[in-house]
Simulated scan of single mutants.
Amino acid sequence: MLQWRNESDGIVAKILNIPIFCTTQNAARLGATVPEITSLLPTDETAKTEVDKTAFSMMVPELQAQLPTNPTSALSVIIVGIETHICVTQTTLDLLAAGHRVYILADGVSSCNAGERPIALNRLAREGAIVTTSESLLFELIRDAKDANFKAIAGLVKETKDETKAAVETFCKL
Rank of each mutant, 00 (worst) to 15 (best):
K158M: 08
A154F: 13
L138Q: 00
G108P: 01
N113G: 05
G99R: 12
V34R: 15
T84V: 02
V60Q: 06
T24S: 13
R126M: 15
N70H: 11
I78T: 01
I20A: 12
E135S: 04
R29S: 07
S136L: 04
L174V: 05
S8R: 13
F139Q: 10
Q3L: 11
S57C: 01
T54K: 06
D9K: 05
I104E: 09
A120Q: 01
A125Y: 01
I104T: 00
E140V: 11
N122S: 15
G155H: 11
R101G: 00
K158Y: 13
D162P: 04
I142S: 10
L138P: 10
M1G: 10
L41N: 08
S39P: 06
T92S: 03
L30C: 13
A106Q: 11
C22M: 07
R126A: 15
L16F: 13
R126S: 15
K165D: 08
R101H: 14
D144I: 07
K161A: 12
P118M: 13
T38E: 12
N113T: 12
N70C: 11
E7A: 14
M58P: 05
E62L: 08
P61F: 06
T133K: 10
G115C: 04
A148S: 13
T133D: 07
K14S: 15
K14Y: 11
R5H: 13
K14G: 15
N17D: 11
P35S: 12
K158R: 12
T133N: 10
Q66C: 05
V77H: 09
R101K: 14
P71E: 11
L75M: 13
L30D: 14
W4D: 06
K173T: 12
V60H: 02
F150H: 11
T33R: 07
C87F: 08
L30I: 13
L16V: 12
T89E: 13
K151L: 07
E169L: 14
G10Y: 09
A148F: 08
V51R: 02
I142P: 11
E116A: 02
T84F: 08
V157E: 03
L75R: 09
K14Q: 15
Q64Y: 04
D52Q: 13
A106G: 14
A152V: 10
L96N: 04
E83M: 00
Y103S: 10
C22N: 01
M58K: 01
I18C: 08
K151F: 06
S39N: 12
L67N: 05
S110D: 13
S8I: 02
L95I: 03
T91A: 09
I79Y: 01
L141M: 15
I104F: 05
D9C: 05
S111Y: 04
D52H: 09
P71L: 12
L156S: 02
